[in-house]
Computed example of a mutant assay.
Amino acid sequence: MFEKVVGIIREQLSVEDKEITMETSLMKDLEADSLDAVEIIMALEDEFSIEIPDTEAEGFKCIGDIVKFVEANK
């Protein structure tokens, strides 16, 4: 699951050269802005056929938070 989520994030942000771990922050480490975050959420929803409420998405602080949510809801 981690690899699929990271693949989507890499594609959306074009960050092939950066190391991404469960602790990586979208905003701080990968320099994603709010529009990037929305596009990533939409791509994840499409890929995994899940709904990610805005209230949940706002709570994602690191890649691990996203992976855990997807695993719990797919």
Rank of each mutant, 00 (worst) to 15 (best):
G59I: 05
N73E: 12
E51F: 07
D46C: 10
L13Q: 06
S49P: 01
I63F: 00
I63M: 02
G7M: 11
S49Y: 08
P53Y: 14
V70H: 01
I50P: 09
E51C: 07
L35K: 01
V67P: 03
G64I: 11
D17L: 10
D65M: 09
L35Q: 06
L30A: 04
D17R: 11
K68D: 10
K28H: 14
V67D: 04
E23I: 08
A32D: 04
I9D: 00
A43S: 15
E39Q: 09
M42S: 12
E23Y: 06
D36H: 02
A37Q: 08
D46H: 08
I52M: 09
V6N: 02
M1A: 15
L26M: 11
K74G: 10
I20D: 04
A37I: 14
L13C: 06
E47Q: 12
F69R: 00
V38T: 12
E45T: 13
E51G: 07
A57I: 13
V38M: 13
M42F: 13
F69W: 06
D36A: 02
S25M: 05
Q12N: 12
V70I: 14
S49K: 15
S14V: 06
G7H: 10
M27Q: 05
E39N: 08
E16Q: 14
T21E: 13
I20M: 07
T55V: 09
A57Y: 03
K18T: 10
D54F: 06
D54G: 09
F60W: 01
S25F: 03
I50G: 05
V70S: 02
V5S: 04
I20F: 03
D65V: 05
A57M: 08
E3V: 12
E71M: 13
L26C: 07
K74W: 06
T21G: 11
L26E: 02
E23P: 04
L26V: 06
E39Y: 00
D54L: 10
G7N: 14
I66S: 00
G7P: 11
V6Y: 00
V38Y: 02
V38N: 01
L44D: 02
K61W: 05
I50S: 10
V67M: 07
G7F: 06
Q12P: 12
A72G: 14
F69D: 00
A72T: 15
E58F: 09
R10P: 00
E47K: 09
F69K: 00
N73M: 13
K18E: 12
E3H: 11
E3K: 13
I52P: 11
L35P: 03
D29W: 00
K68I: 07
A32F: 02
D33H: 04
C62T: 15
K4E: 14
E51V: 07
F60V: 03
E31W: 04
Q12W: 02
I9Y: 01
M1H: 14
E16R: 11
K4C: 09
A43F: 05
D36Y: 00
C62M: 14
A32Q: 03
A37L: 14
A72D: 15
E71H: 11
L44K: 02
G64K: 05
M1F: 14
I8M: 05
